[in-house]
Each structure stands twice: as C-alpha cells, then as structure tokens.
Deep mutational scan, measured.
Amino acid sequence: GHYRIRINGREFEIRGISEEEIRHLEEALRNGADEKILKEIVDRLRG
C-alpha cells in the first residue's frame, strides 16, 4: 500500500504498509494513542 497522511499541516507519504496495519493504527487512534502511533509509524519507516 501507498498512502498520504497529513500531520500538523505537513503531508507525508507512507509506503509499504498493509491494510491490516492500517486497521490496527485506526483502532489505536480511536483509543487515543496519538503520540505512540506516530512513533510506531516513524520507527517503521526508519526500517
């Protein structure tokens, strides 16, 4: 998958993330885990 997200007015492209991972992120966001989720995304993109 290849997705664009906007955070604090800046747009980011996220590549190589699966539909299942996105559902997991959405679930966590609904549970209020904003900073933790951003850290997970950044860590994943770093490799």
Rank of each mutant, 00 (worst) to 15 (best):
G32K: 05
I41D: 00
E19R: 08
R30P: 01
V42A: 05
F12V: 10
D34G: 14
R10A: 13
R10W: 14
G9S: 02
R10Y: 14
G9I: 01
V42C: 05
D34E: 11
E40G: 11
A28M: 14
G32H: 06
E13V: 12
D34F: 15
E13N: 02
R10K: 15
R46Y: 07
G16E: 06
A28F: 12
Y3K: 08
R4D: 03
L25P: 00
S18P: 06
R15I: 15
G47M: 11
R44L: 09
V42K: 02
L25F: 06
E20D: 09
S18G: 07
L29Y: 05
R6W: 08
F12K: 00
D34Y: 14
D34K: 05
I22E: 03
N31D: 10
N31T: 13
R10P: 00
L29M: 10
I37T: 12
G9C: 04
R4G: 03
K39A: 13
F12R: 00
E40V: 11
E11K: 01
E13A: 02
R30A: 13
Y3G: 11
G16T: 05
E35S: 12
G16M: 08
E27I: 07
V42M: 10
L38Y: 03
I5E: 02
K36F: 11
E19D: 13
G32L: 07
R15K: 12
L45P: 03
D43G: 07
E13L: 07
D43C: 13
F12D: 00
N31A: 11
R23L: 10
E27S: 10
A33V: 14
G32P: 03
R46H: 14
H24W: 14
H24T: 14
I37K: 08
I7L: 04
E27T: 12
V42S: 03
I5H: 00
I37L: 13
H2C: 15
R4Y: 06
I22P: 00
R23C: 06
R6H: 08
S18C: 04
D34C: 04
I7T: 01
G47W: 02
E27D: 13
N8R: 03
L25Q: 00
I14F: 14
K39E: 13
N31I: 10
L29G: 02
G1K: 07
L25H: 00
H2R: 09
I37W: 09
L45A: 05
E11G: 01
G1W: 02
R10F: 15
I22L: 07
A28I: 14
E19L: 11
E40M: 11
R15H: 15
N31R: 09
G32T: 04
E40I: 10
E20T: 09
R15G: 06
D34A: 15
L29I: 14
K36E: 10
E13S: 02
Y3C: 14
R15Y: 14
R15E: 07
I17A: 13
G16I: 08
D43E: 09
R6Q: 13
D43Y: 02
I5C: 15
Y3L: 15
I7A: 00
I41F: 12
K36R: 14
H2N: 14
L45N: 04
K36S: 11
E19N: 10
L45G: 03
S18N: 06
K36P: 04
H2V: 09
Y3M: 15
R4Q: 12
L38E: 01
H24F: 14
G1L: 07
E19K: 13
G9K: 01
G47I: 14
I5P: 02
N31F: 08
D34W: 15
G47N: 12
I22G: 04
F12G: 00
D43S: 07
E35W: 12
R46G: 15
K39C: 14
R30K: 12
K39M: 15
L25W: 04
I14C: 05
E13W: 08
E11H: 03
K36L: 13
E13C: 13
K36G: 09
H2F: 07
E11Q: 03
H2L: 04
A28C: 08
I37V: 11
E11F: 06
E11I: 10
G47F: 04
L38H: 01
G32R: 05
E40K: 08
Y3P: 12
L25K: 00
I5Q: 00
I7R: 00
I14D: 00
E13Y: 11
G9T: 01
R44A: 10
A33H: 07
S18L: 04
E13F: 05
V42E: 04
S18Y: 02
E20Y: 06
H24D: 12
K36Q: 10
E13M: 04
E26C: 13
I7N: 00
R46S: 14
E35I: 12
L29Q: 06
D43Q: 07
E21Q: 13
G47K: 11
E35V: 08
L45Q: 04
A28P: 00
R30F: 08
E20L: 08
E19Q: 12
D43W: 01
I22Y: 08
N8T: 01
R10H: 15
R10D: 14
N8W: 03
L29N: 02
G16H: 12
L38M: 10
